[in-house]
Design a protein around this nucleic acid. Structure first.
Length: 422
RNA sequence: GGAGGAGUGGCAGAGUGGUCGAUUGCACUUGUCUUGAAAACAAGAGUCCCUUCACGGGGACCGUGAGUUCGAAUCUCACCUCCUCCGCCA
């Protein structure tokens, strides 16, 4: 959500934002509705003012006939008021619906483009190794090492179902624990949020009303979040925060549920795209300052890069083009890890900042030094998702004998073992 | 799942149809007094929206949403949250 005053004064910027993001949004329509809304609002308020005045007159009238006259007058007035109020209510709904689909303004540095193929590489790290033996893909490797069981996963859950088993489980826990320690040292407070959350909380982050198709909904009207970002952002909803605590840095851990509607033909095998996975997520709140947001955006993205570097997996970072940005994002980096058997990089992390787009929706404010209430800025970035990370990890660390070498940093969390083998 | 009770400003806590946006206490800000502080006294202070260059004016907000009424914090209905008791349960 953006400030309506800003939209009124900068409709060309909004138009340009929609164009760059390849979203269809009609600002002119919004501005027409906004004008109609204001006319109705002022009419209703004038009528109410008159009603208040007459009601006061009723209560102070001592003469019964005078009193009755006033009551008759308000009765007549009320009918007009009621009709206008209904009109206003409908107009407000129309206005709110439009307001919820206004795109946030992408940063100048965001490249032009339609989809992820137009994303621009900004960094490349690590040496891609040539295998001296026939390399296996993660499905084959992990199945043989009994780290995963896809067949039974499908039996139990269906399409995209999987069991993690044995060393697959241990490796997951190792990554989770290592990540917890890694980010704790960087000032993040760990949090395990409810992943089953209310509609309102999803509205706050912008996953609703758009994006409903990709969410699982319960019979009680709640939704399962696709990321801890949703409930962790909800944590401070409707609060006025103390600016002295900024930046607030949370590391949220949760299972994540995604219907993957519209991706049925993509990544049908393996652990790349599953309906249910786990993720550590960085969520940050800071003061409403562009420079601060930008600095923190670089910082949280860098955190994940350094984490991946410590695991020793080759990656590159791309800056997402306009068409690959969500409605609320100002700028986004994706970190993609090298998947040897696919001979390409696959997304592992996504770092975005939003300015006050989310905090307006979620009503997260703070008191500025000059005493005025402002909407905070919000950012988030994947810390590490499992089991997707295992794809690159096992493929890059496989040995000729079919075993998988364990990255040094994870060994303390794996009982000191150096290899996963049968 | 069943029965009962409650949700008021930063906190505590009055108010059960008519100048109530709301008594009061604590906390807060400013002033007087004081060398300074404390105490005492006085004054001030909520949020959102519309309008105005500005001073100002108007509207809304007592968990949320609807309703009754000339008028609702107060009455009615639905929902949400919390508390107590019973039942069930990792």
């Amino acid at each position: 959500m953006l400030d309506i005053k800003f939209i009124r004064e900068n409709k060309d910027i909004i138009k340009e934002a929609a164009r760059k993001k390849h979203l269809s949004f009609d600002v002119d329509q919004l501005l027409v509705v906004d004008k109609e809304r204001l006319v109705l609002l002022s009419t209703v308020e004038q009528l109410r003012s008159e009603q208040n005045r007459l009601s006061d007159a009723v209560s102070t009238a001592t003469d019964q006939t005078v009193r009755a006259t006033f009551i008759d007058q308000v009765r007549v007035l009320k009918e007009t008021l009621k009709a206008k109020e209904e009109e206003l209510r409908d107009k407000m709904k129309e206005w709110q619906t439009l307001m919820l689909s206004v795109p946030n303004i992408p940063d100048m540095s965001v490249p032009e483009g339609e989809s992820d193929v137009d994303n621009v590489e900004v960094k490349k790290w690590g040496d891609i190794q040539e295998f001296t033996f026939p390399a296996k893909d993660h499905v084959e490797l992990m199945t043989q090492l009994k780290m995963v069981d896809f067949e039974r996963g499908t039996k139990v859950h269906g399409f995209r179902g999987y069991f993690l088993t044995g060393k697959g489980v241990q490796l997951s826990f190792a990554i989770w624990n290592y990540a917890l320690s890694f980010w704790s040292q960087r000032g993040f407070t760990p949090v395990i949020p409810p992943i089953l959350a209310r509609k309102q909380i999803f509205m706050g982050t912008g996953y609703l009303p758009q994006g409903e198709d990709d969410l699982y909904k319960t019979q009680d009207g709640d939704y399962l979040a696709g990321t801890a970002e949703v409930p962790v952002m909800g944590l401070h909803a409707d609060e006025v925060l103390d600016a002295a605590t900024f930046p607030i840095k949370y590391l949220g851990f949760s299972p994540c549920y995604r219907r993957e509607a519209g991706s049925h033909s993509k990544d049908v095998k393996g652990l790349i795209r599953v309906h249910e996975f786990y993720k550590w997520e960085q969520v940050v709140l800071c003061e409403a300052d562009h420079t601060t947001s930008v600095a923190l955006h670089e910082e949280i993205n860098r955190n994940t890069e350094e984490f991946i570097e410590s695991l020793g997996i080759p990656y590159h970072t791309v800056v997402n083009c306009g068409g690959d940005l969500g409605q609320g994002q100002v700028k986004k980096y994706d970190i993609e890890l090298w998947v040897p058997k696919e001979e390409r990089y696959r997304e592992i992390s996504s770092a975005s900042y939003f300015h006050d787009f989310q905090t307006r929706r979620g009503n997260i404010r703070y008191k500025d030094k000059d005493g005025t209430l402002r909407f905070a800025h919000s950012l988030n970035c994947t810390a590490i998702p499992t089991p997707r990370i295992l794809v690159s990890l096992v493929e890059n660390y496989q040995e000729a004998d079919g075993s998988v070498r364990i990255p040094e940093v994870l060994r303390p969390y794996m009982g000191g073992e150096t290899h996963i083998k049968n």
